[in-house]
Design a protein around this nucleic acid. Sequence first.
DNA 1: CTGCAAATCAACATAAACCAACATATCCTT
DNA 2: AAGGATATGTTGGTTTATGTTGATTTGCAG
Lengths: 254, 254
Amino acid sequence: MHATKRETEILNTVRLKGSVTTMELAEMLGVTDQTIRRNVIPLVERGLVKKVHGAIVAPDRLLEAPFHRRMLENQDAKQNLATVVAATIADGDSIMLDAGSTTSYVAQALVDKKNLTVITNSAQIASTLAPNPTNKVYFAGSELRSDDSAAFDAQALKTFNQFDVQYAILSATALHAQRGIMVQKAHEAELSRMLISRASHVIVAADSTKFDRKSLISVCEFSDIQTLVSNEAPIGELAEALETNNVFVSTPNT
Amino acid sequence: MHATKRETEILNTVRLKGSVTTMELAEMLGVTDQTIRRNVIPLVERGLVKKVHGAIVAPDRLLEAPFHRRMLENQDAKQNLATVVAATIADGDSIMLDAGSTTSYVAQALVDKKNLTVITNSAQIASTLAPNPTNKVYFAGSELRSDDSAAFDAQALKTFNQFDVQYAILSATALHAQRGIMVQKAHEAELSRMLISRASHVIVAADSTKFDRKSLISVCEFSDIQTLVSNEAPIGELAEALETNNVFVSTPNT
DNA sequence: CTGCAAATCAACATAAACCAACATATCCTT
DNA sequence: AAGGATATGTTGGTTTATGTTGATTTGCAG
């Protein structure tokens, strides 16, 4: 294993876990801690990671935002279910991607697809998928909120409304047997409904911590969606509600 | 086995595995490592693979993108002039930021400002400045081009047109005594003119490599701008033209 | 504040990879 | 078949990456 490959490994690990010790990296990559320190120098120079005594950490600006904290919560679960969602999408498909920590993982899992048409209201997702020259990426919205650099204004609705796509990939704050898909803010709900109305196949991506909870606003019934992708299969009442409404449930194991 | 056949073999292996050592290839193809090194040279020249010490690796698609190459060219100069631009901007100011490698550095230099109102057509700049909760960031545009994740469509023009700001910060491809500010594409020029018309103070950020050159389209006369920020002061005819039109020239030394 | 352990850094040694130059083999043309 | 051009192998010196050792710094408990 050469230095360059180790650099990308280090970067990935730091981005995934937020921080990692020199020793952990040394063991993981089968070299001495000294070599790790040397490999980290160019990464620090490029501002991609930061060094503190005892560990390599992601730069502050990424960690401070609440959104980035959500990116770090349940990261394994989100990573896994993102892979499952990505497996559903084929080269050349057209998709709408809602803003959210889970959907950001989905976007990351889609970088190697080709010829995608992507419409999203998240600046982060847009700049993840736009650099691929085979893709066609549209940003929906104008006024960005600071939390996650995403737009939920009239312009966002208007842009989504112009398109008809194969898949809409939604995030959610809660899933509840009686109340269906739920989110925290009224304008998030409104936007989600727009995505649902413009896609022939609606995929909800939500990790199992969202199960059997309520949030503030109900976005839609389960009958309005086609697929739920999660890290675990739901059980009990929620599972029944999904089955009754013919929602296909997809998990890493199936 | 001929050299050309080995070349395709090398390319396939690199694409399949991401990276491979010279020795592995030598063994696999039954020739010495020296021959492999020679066979790799034309592949590197064509940009199909990259060499690092210890291995041949697939080129980092993102880094090879023209925009990212521009980000790396004249890094110090751009960094310096970005600091100068940032010094001009005060907390609470309203600014429009054009897409470009130089303006990306400016955005980076503005992260610690507070209460900025920012309108930009670059997704990258938007996601640099939006996470600061004291800022108000608007993204202008919908259809992103892959090169730099920026928008130059009608929607972008329309959004910029809604605002009136204190500063417009423009990038440029060339500055020429007779032809003024120049860029490479017609829609870039159109967008720049929109920014100029909506700002009370126009700042052009351009490093000294842009001086005394021509590009395809003329954006505006020097009389239309107020400030030029660069890493070096221009000389000769260009300096005269700027002075005649009362353009204030600002550099890291002044 | 002091002392200790862990982490870091600096300097050197070694091994691996690299490159340049020359020697040899192979191919192609006439 | 001869000769030139090209490709490959070989050799030796140069650079780079890694490991090792010991000195220095840092964080923390008492």
